[in-house]
């Protein structure tokens, strides 16, 4: 059989491909059809206790463990007026810099309270650098039903040990802030709230 000219042979490949199964995934239109694997390392999340208090105690162990120096934590004391987590200490400033993070997961391994875990969220693109530094408000887990946004007091009659022992299963009405604790937070200078003061 005489050899066909190479140009025509090339069209043969093209023609044959038209009858093959398509492997292209329609992203982002059909993103839901292709969920990541359950243990995929995606964006981090700062978890809450069942009553809404934060689990993070601002210990900085995650920041210490991070090989990419992507995490910045500044802790502070919980007070009677403004309690964010059970116990003495909470994370006042919490930032993860997704320009640096390599999604290795060492931080979540280091976290002693399981405050920090990773979600499957991988859509972390943006058009500027500043927005890729996620603040505490961007990382905190959403409030589920039964949770009250901190600051508020612990479930009356419990200690932080009860929280760690899993004895707190939801909020109680007494924990509803009496007006001023939330106002306290709102009235702070931005510098105080963001920990620059």
């Amino acid at each position: 059989m005489p050899e066909l000219p190479p140009a025509v042979r090339g069209f043969g490949v093209t023609f044959a491909t038209m009858f093959k199964k398509v492997v292209t995934e329609e992203y982002p239109e059909q993103a839901d059809r292709y969920p990541p694997k359950p243990r995929f390392h995606g964006r981090h999340q700062l978890n809450r206790w069942a009553d809404g208090l934060e689990k993070c105690i601002g210990c900085e162990l995650c920041a210490w463990a991070c090989p990419a120096d992507a995490i910045l934590v500044e802790a502070d004391s919980n007070t009677e007026e403004a309690r964010f987590s059970p116990g003495e200490r909470y994370g006042r400033v919490y930032q993860i810099n997704y320009l640096r993070c390599i999604f290795c997961g060492l931080c979540i391994e280091a976290c002693p309270t399981r405050a920090l875990t990773m979600t499957n969220v991988y859509e972390l693109a943006d058009d500027n650098r500043a927005d890729l530094i996620y603040e505490k408000k961007d990382l905190l887990a959403p409030l589920l039903p039964g949770m009250i946004p901190p600051p508020h007091r612990m479930v009356p009659g419990t200690t932080e040990k009860d929280y760690y022992a899993g004895k707190v299963t939801g909020s109680v009405p007494e924990q509803e802030p009496e007006g001023d604790s939330e106002i306290w937070y709102e009235t702070q200078e931005p510098a105080v709230r963001e920990g620059r003061a």
Binding site: W64, E74, A75, E88
Partner: peptide, 9 residues
């Protein structure tokens, strides 16, 4: 100094 830093900071 309470809760303000870790030595590596």
């Amino acid at each position: 100094y309470r809760f303000r830093a870790r030595p590596f900071d």
